[in-house]
Design a protein around this nucleic acid. Structure first.
Lengths: 118, 118
DNA sequence: TTTTAATGAGCAATAAATTACGCAAAAAGG
DNA sequence: CCTTTTTGCGTAATTTATTGCTCATTAAAA
């Protein structure tokens, strides 16, 4: 599970998995296309790693009855405890700039490891 | 967890979650854009529910060090046990048509509930 | 082996996304 | 307050995705 994948390779892998799920449900591309409300060509492109749009992905997941997968994919991150501390209860709406002075310290470039990390 | 979301609403929700994750890491749109190798405008659009491409999504997840999220999102479905049974060990490469005759029965239109369902 | 349906791919037209730019509004921090 | 930085949103040009065809291949089923 290393980061040994280019972005393109990841897109290809996503396509393969969508295809396998479709086949496990014994759906044809045409049938899925109809369910998802897109053309068969779009399904073909997606499955073969030619990419597509976010909207298409969501439509296809719905067609496969796998929309719930998105919930596990992007669980609501919630607000980081650190953010709550820094802003004394306020939720951050923007990233902080390099506004510093004194020793409040440099902006942490390292992440805080708050949920779904790599 | 009902299907009370339109496809568009799902895209919007994805944008919000990506934004919150970015803010939890205290990254500016500009900084994330640089990491992901896309324009800041693309980040803005994505976060504001204007959609984007699959490639962009992957790039942004990588920029957030959240590529692993895709693994939980689209876990390798593997081959359905039913498929293995039907094809006597062979992996299905295409969906089955309405080739029937005799009583081998109509093609199951209902899914088999094999992994990551809704 | 023969038939039938599923798939991949090309092509032209249309629609959507990305880009670099700049500017106004607003949050963050002092 | 005042300053700095972030953010959203236009616009125009460029690139990419989608659609509806059609056709050649190939897996699946009998």
């Amino acid at each position: 599970m290393k980061g040994a994948y280019t972005d393109d390779a990841v897109v290809v892998e996503i396509g393969h998995r969508l295809q396998r799920e479709r086949l496990n449900q014994n759906l044809s591309q045409a049938a899925l296309a109809k369910r998802a409300g897109v053309s068969r060509k779009t399904i073909t492109n997606l499955e073969n790693g030619a990419g597509g749009t976010l909207g298409t992905l969501v439509a296809v997941l719905r067609g496969l009855n796998k929309l719930a997968a998105l919930e596990s994919f992007l669980p609501d991150p919630g607000v980081s405890p650190m953010q709550l501390l820094k802003l004394e209860g306020k939720v951050r709406q923007r990233a902080s700039g390099k506004h510093k002075r004194g020793d409040r310290g440099v902006v942490e470039e390292t992440s805080e490891k708050w949920e779904w990390d790599d």
